[in-house]
Amino acid sequence: MGDVELSLSRLRMLRELHRQGTVTAAAGALHYTASAVSQQLAQLERDVGGTLFERLGRRVQLTELGIVLAEHAEEILGSVERATLALEDAQQARTVRLTAGVWASVAAGLLPQALTALAAEHPGIHVRTRELAPEDTAGAVRDGALDFSFVIDYSGHPMTWDPALTREVVAVERLYAAVPAGTLPGPTVALAELAEHPWILAGPRSHFGRAVRLACRRAGFDPTTSHEVEEQYTALAMVSAGLGITLVSDLGLVRHPPGMDVVPLTEPVMRTVSIAYRTRAARRPALHAVIECVRRVAAMQGLGAEAGLTVPDDGTTGPRLPLP
């Protein structure tokens, strides 16, 4: 065998194939199409000059050669990341590029001011963003597609957590009832009082959709979903048109249509916003500069993370309250 030049992106795809077991799942984790991953893995086999995997029905099993390369891929990719960190330290974070996973309300409510402050204080740190569903962002960080991401946890429905990731809480939000204007007579409402209304909710597979449904069940009812939509602003537009009610967070209220009332819940439903990054990247000064800017903006908006909330060391998630 002659000299072999290995592509880092193809090694990352092989590593993910080894973890996931199917090309489709690996492609989803890395945010590529399945055909693109198949083509790149085929090229990797040509680069290596041997068979790296074989299909067993819908699943894929790595050959002995594939397992050897996948194991070395872990070491190679880890070494590349450590080298990147060392270079950043040597350059004192003067020129650093980070890619962040965001979702709509964070992108609209926190990032504009945070990135403006970052540019003024640390002009050498450049942040690119990629919008993903909130439940997908942590996996993209774990797999190396992102340097960090925003993640959420609800007071009654924490996400499972990967021990390879560390998170820093940057904001604490409250959820409110969003209802057509004039629907409710009082200044606050108990969640149970909304049981007879038609609901506009994200699907039950989304973290937000599951969290709201669980909160409603704890209040003694299952919400009747008239409209299932994933984007919060779309849900609010439907509320303003009188089509139903929903819950909305503080950041979701950065922009909202007219024709609706926002009513506090008598028993608050809370959620935390954190920044997740790979634990081995904890020494990156650029990363902590970003976190500090985001925290400062959240605090200016009254969403400061210091309100009696911590993230435990045991890998579990969710706020440690007293709730306000």
Rank of each mutant, 00 (worst) to 15 (best):
V4Q: 12
L6I: 08
R15D: 06
H18S: 15
G21V: 00
A27N: 05
Y32P: 00
A36I: 00
L41S: 00
L41Q: 00
A42N: 05
R46K: 13
V48P: 08
F53V: 05
R55K: 15
R58C: 07
R58F: 09
L65K: 14
L65A: 15
V68E: 15
L69C: 12
S79R: 10
R82T: 03
L87W: 14
D89L: 14
Q91L: 14
Q92A: 14
A93T: 08
R94C: 03
T95D: 11
A100C: 07
S105L: 05
V106L: 12
A107N: 10
A114Y: 09
L115A: 00
L115T: 02
T116Q: 12
G124F: 03
H126G: 02
R130T: 04
D136N: 11
D136L: 14
G139P: 09
A140D: 01
V141H: 03
D147A: 04
V151P: 04
Y154R: 01
M159E: 12
V169W: 06
L175Q: 15
A177T: 05
A177F: 10
P180I: 00
L201E: 06
P204R: 09
S206Y: 09
A215R: 09
R217L: 11
R218S: 14
T225W: 03
S226E: 03
E228T: 10
T234R: 15
I245G: 03
T246S: 09
G252V: 03
R255L: 14
P257F: 05
V263H: 08
V263E: 05
T266I: 02
A281R: 12
R283V: 05
H288R: 13
H288T: 01
V294M: 03
V294L: 11
A298M: 02
Q301H: 15
L303V: 05
A305Y: 10
P312D: 06
P312A: 11
D314G: 02
D314Q: 00
